[in-house]
Write a protein that binds this DNA or RNA. Structure first.
Lengths: 241, 241
DNA sequence: TCAAAAGTGTTACATATACACCCATGT
DNA sequence: ACATGGGTGTATATGTAACACTTTTGA
């Protein structure tokens, strides 16, 4: 009934015909420009999808952990290390890649666009930020990967305040609210949002104001990582409104 | 800076050295015996982990989608089709498998133990049900995979009543509560549990009673899948208590 | 003085939690 | 009669949702 020779957990000799596949990692790199959620995309040079837009990805080196590969790709493309990175899931349709059998593992990461601009100056890699609402048809199965990543991010942000990774160190509550609205793709009530955020106890009031804005300047906050780590241990956040 | 020749999304010729890996699927098959959450495990025949206990898994055929492979493995091992199946994530540490570079994609599935027993009689595959609380050291990185799957199931069950897949068609509210307690690994309040479950509107009161029990017989219910599908579309459940 | 965004409280409603006793059956 | 699990309601606390006006700045 079961062909034990092909069963990798119960024991097998290396069966050459199985070791002819490759893995890739695709990174959905999210950024935020103060108004819209953006994703970093590149032009595809693969002959089957020539000129189409694609996610940033690469083959995983045989001597490289999956997570390592994701960090390497991010570092290569953005110049940034220590970025927020989360695995989404694996995509493995047989014909998803024309070159051969390639299973890809999707990751999303959250980076600060300003920091990217500073660091990536030396990397002329022709990547560009596209509003997630305006992403057209992508190469391969990348539209599906992007959708799954957006969903994953939505769920994450409802329980963990990871959105801070997309903002500058100092930010206003309105910027934060705009970010949540962009991620959750729905409007939020200003007063309720502020109450909830402040009651979470992860914001540090910097007692500092915006400057040179053509309206009443807003108070600046930063994110208290230590406080957040403590909260993670005690119990879950819940950010729903 | 970036080696475009090795970049699979922007275009590449097949690079043989990358196409020497394999994928496997590992299935965390959960069952419920009325009291404890169980997982179906097998004895490992791999020489590196000889005699150790392991999850059920297999290599993915080069001509087979990932999901297909998971369904095939389940069918082979349990005789069951149309089971509830959910991808967890990919595990890709370089040395996780001694035979070669093997990335594995974990799935968990929820099946009914009674149904399994009926169907698997002809498959003498020496699999056995182990209480998840009592699982010892497993082969490969399977303890990590099991943990990730339990977490994933916990989260799922808080928002979607998928637990029904583990029960018989007819069940009592106490059985259902025991199941939730086993999955969430904490006690729940009887009255609050019943109120909440009933208010979800996914239970059908069969107007039928338990028989041959040495105490007051309990009312039997079944799960209303159509109602559930409707609810999924409208908005999310929330099962937290 | 105008435009533009910042900032602020209260009330109604819904949901979650805590909690203890009587009931029906088989032995 | 007793042991076993089945079944039920209420009060309180907490969280969520809805809602509009005044303030501060630069132009």
């Amino acid at each position: 009934m079961i062909d034990y020779k092909t069963n990798i957990n119960t024991g097998l000799k290396q069966i050459d015909s199985y070791f002819k596949s490759a893995f890739s990692v695709d990174c959905v790199i999210f950024g935020f420009d103060g108004k819209d959620l953006k994703v970093l995309l590149v032009k595809c040079l693969d002959e089957n999808y020539l000129g189409q837009t694609a996610l940033i990805g690469d083959l995983v080196d045989p001597k490289e952990d999956l997570d390592e590969a994701a960090y390497r790709i991010l570092k290569n493309r953005t110049g940034l290390s220590n970025v927020y990175l989360e695995q989404v899931k694996a995509f493995g349709r047989v014909n998803r890649h024309p070159t051969g059998r390639v299973i890809t593992v999707a990751y999303y990461s959250l980076i600060n666009i300003e920091q990217y601009k500073e660091n990536s100056a030396s990397y002329n890699n022709q990547a560009s930020w596209v509003n997630v609402q305006e992403v057209g048809e992508l190469a391969f199965d990348h539209n599906g990967i992007l959708e799954a990543s957006r969903d994953s991010l939505k769920n994450k942000v409802l329980t963990h305040p990871v959105g801070f990774n997309l903002l500058s160190e100092k930010f206003t509550l309105t910027e934060l609210q705009n970010l949540y609205e962009a991620i959750l793709d729905k409007p939020l009530d200003k007063r309720n949002f502020r109450k909830k955020m402040i009651s979470m106890n992860v914001l540090v009031d910097l007692e500092e104001m915006q400057k040179d804005v053509a309206h009443r300047p807003a108070r600046l906050y930063s994110f208290d990582e230590k406080r957040y780590e403590q909260l993670l241990q005690s119990r879950n956040f819940n950010f729903d409104s």
